[in-house]
Structures are given as C-alpha cells and as structure tokens.
C-alpha cells in the first residue's frame, strides 16, 4: 500500500561543490514537483534516511530542482558522497512557504548566514522573477570566512538587477579578501530600508537568527514585519510526528518560515 512516507525516486543529475563544506545537488524528479519559495522537501539518502531541506533553485524552474546542503552530520556526509547518476528520494513539498503576496509593493531586507543563503535563494529567485512587483530587495549575507561564502559566482549577477543590492561580510578574513569583516548584524546598523513599508526575512544558524532578530527589532522593525526560517528536527514533514513545535505551531506544517509575532512569546523560540 502506498503511504505518505513513500519517497519519489529521483536521479542526481549533477553535484556542484559550492564551498569545502557545501554542495548543491541538481535533481531530476520523474515528474515536476511544484513548490513555493520557502517550502521544503524531505530528501532520502538510500539506506541512511531522510532529512528536511529547502530547495535552493527557483520555484519557476520545474524540470530540475536544486538542493544545497552543508555537511553537518551522518546523513549530510552521505549526501556529500553522492555522484551524478545516483538515486535519492524526495517527499514534499511541505510547509507554507513565504507569503509572497504580502511582500508585494514592499522593500525586503533579506539576511542570510552561511548555508542559510540556500533556502533564501529560492525566495530570491522568486522575487527576481517578478522584480517589478517588489519595491526593493536588499540582501545582507555573512559567512564564517571567504571560503564558506555560498553561491559566490552569482553575486555580481544579483547586484546588477534593478532594485537589488547585496552586501557581503565574513566573520574572519583570509588571504585574498578585501571585503567587509564582521558579523552580518553589523551590516544592518546603517541600512536605509524604509521601515514603514518593509519586511525583514532571515535564514541562518539559530544563534545568528537570534541576534539578527534582536537587531531587526532594535533598528525599528516590528515583530510582525519579521519572517524567520526556523529549524527544528523534523521527521514526517506533515505535523504528525510531533517534534518540531514552537508553541502550538509545527514548523513543518505551519512554517518553516514563521512570522516572529506568532512565536516570540514562547521561551524556547531560539532553542
């Protein structure tokens, strides 16, 4: 009997090395998997199990799907061993995704940390697809060091888009880096975003999310103008296995991108 836990067998077309610890899988699902920016997939590595990842490719690209993954544990180490031609499994998409209609006519401050830029790239690609609908897209991105900057090859292209600006920083510089050094929160100090007509969006490690959120609030964003890509362990993806809740919300079903106003009251919001 076909169950809701059955993965869709999917071929790995290509594996792109983004950084020493981040790879992008280019996948060719047997049939297109429509998704909204911010929605995620459960990726099966054969025999290893499943983990949730948000596609990093555009929702408007339906023939292939890209998922960008940091090597962080047993399953993701297996992901990094995958080669073109290997098979993986997909379930999904799950979650709500970003409320793009709410973002229309607004300025968007998009703040990423490390591999957190991967899920944000799906959002950015969706925004770039209809740039005239959005007033401005201001991207702030930070990584630990220059080697860990994800999608570096695309920054120039993004910056050239009308209404799009990008600032990049690294926590600590090495050899050839002549860009900014410091935490990504530093980039938010002198933002010229118009707070009365803006939304802030962030994705990154939990500790970064916490301080980015505090910074958003301190520069004048209200809680309901902030969308955070929240992470918890997820097994089912459908709000039934129990573990990914913050308050009454199941991040897999109600998120993973949550409006901060909905979750700020819960003591365990940042782990």
């Amino acid at each position: 009997m076909e169950t809701i836990f059955q993965p869709l067998e999917t071929k790995v077309l290509d594996v792109i090395t983004e950084t020493p610890t981040i790879k992008t899988l280019v996948l060719k699902p047997p049939e297109p998997i429509p998704f909204r920016a911010g929605q995620f997939m459960q990726l099966t590595v054969y025999g290893e199990g499943e983990a949730p990842f948000t596609p990093s490719s555009s929702p408007f690209e339906t023939e292939t799907m890209e998922i960008t993954i940091l090597k962080a544990g047993r399953l993701t180490e297996a992901v990094h061993r995958l080669k073109p031609g290997d098979m993986v499994g997909l379930r999904g998409p799950f979650g709500k995704g970003y409320p793009l209609h709410k973002f229309e006519g607004k300025e968007l401050l998009v703040v990423g940390g490390g591999v957190g830029l991967a899920p944000l790239r799906a959002l950015l690609n969706a925004l770039f697809h209809d740039l005239d609908k959005f007033k401005r897209v201001s991207i702030k991105y930070g990584a630990r060091n220059p080697d860990e900057l994800c999608f570096r090859r695309q920054y120039q292209q993004w910056q050239q888009l009308p209404g799009v600006d990008l600032e990049v920083t690294v926590d600590s510089a090495n050899g050839n880096w002549d860009g900014k050094v410091g935490l990504v929160t530093n980039l938010l100090d002198d933002t010229d975003i118009h707070l009365d007509n803006a939304f802030a969006v962030s994705c990154g490690p939990e500790i970064m999310l916490k301080f980015v959120t505090l910074k958003f609030l301190s520069i004048g964003f209200k809680a309901d103008q902030i969308y955070l890509s929240m992470n918890r362990k997820m097994s089912c993806g459908m709000g039934i296995c129990g573990r990914c809740n913050i308050g009454p919300y199941y991040l897999c079903k109600d998120g993973p991108d949550m409006n901060f106003a909905d979750i700020q009251q819960y003591p365990d919001v940042f782990g």
Partner: peptide, 17 residues
C-alpha cells in the same frame, strides 16, 4: 501520545522505512 520517528534500514535488494 502519537509521536514517532522514521528511520531507514537496508534489506537485501531494497530499503525499508
């Protein structure tokens, strides 16, 4: 109570969830 965890096991010619 209804919480669960999924895990995959290798079998002879396939994998079981």
């Amino acid at each position: 109570c209804h919480c669960f965890l999924l895990y995959d096991l290798p079998r002879e010619d396939r994998y079981e969830r």
